[in-house]
Amino acid sequence: MTTPVLEARDVTMRFGGLTAVRSVDFTVNSGEIVGLIGPNGAGKTTFFNCLTGLYVPTEGTVAYQGKVLPPKPHMVTQAGIARTFQNIRLFANMTVLENVLVGRHTRTKEGLWSALLRGPGFRKAERESEERALQLLEFVGLAEKREHLARNLPYGEQRKLEIARALASEPGLLLLDEPTAGMNPQETRTTEELVFAIRDMGIAVLVIEHDMRFIFNLCDRVAVLVQGEKLIEGTSEVVQADERVIAAYLGEPFEGEPDTAEAAEVDTAEAAAATAEPAGATTARAGTAGSETTEAGTAEVEAAGSADSTEGETQ
């Protein structure tokens, strides 16, 4: 549990004058599920892209199992880090099986010559790749749809296929960029189980997600990124209780003391709102003081998350 799989040291990413990620230190240990949260535009996806070599960090290093990663995406994958994308990026016009086979690229060696000559080695490698791909499709539950085109899959299955494709490269660390975005609660739950199953395969997982319930259920550790800086890192409980996190999501209380007239106005307005509020919303707010704020935060973030489809990786 203690060997670090991924170590990011002092990672800074500047785009001209804008510093998207500012000296972030970050570690993922083997067998861990780590969450990365933060408000929109906090630099989560940029940080992900720095980890996977899509961006070359302006400063700092990223090391995988003690070795510093080269700043090339394909070499990062070769080293053992696989990822999915925030906006699904499947090979839309390839079949489901072919998508996963492409994921096998780094773990197979056959070049052009062996493809042309079709020796026994080539056939064996192709057969093995196909078997492995089918196992993975079985694992995510898409084996029957192996001959469908990826673009014809429903949304939730496309997400699963992306995970299967990433797993095909036999990673030691899987990076999931908002794996449950746009999913209904039931699909989110299956994804949760899927991530646990992946962890049980011995693969460390790093998740970016806006769904707080999902994150806090899933993760052993959660890091919060705000305006490019790592605010806090710790277990779900620690992060949920931290005032700065709440402040980052909901904003800080007004500094100046409101005068009495103003306070009375707010009180009456709140009372009116409370009576008008449906029963369900009030029960959702019931609970301990700590989780109450988190719930409110969750609601806020989820609302923001639905509008958040533009923060993509601008490759």
């Binding site: 899509l54 995406p73 690229h105």
Partner: peptide, 16 residues
């Protein structure tokens, strides 16, 4: 074909 479909995703899958 993967490169034709989506070059960024293809490189992220380990294709040079």
């Amino acid at each position: 074909i993967a490169i034709r479909e989506d070059e960024t995703a293809a490189t992220a899958m380990g294709i040079n």
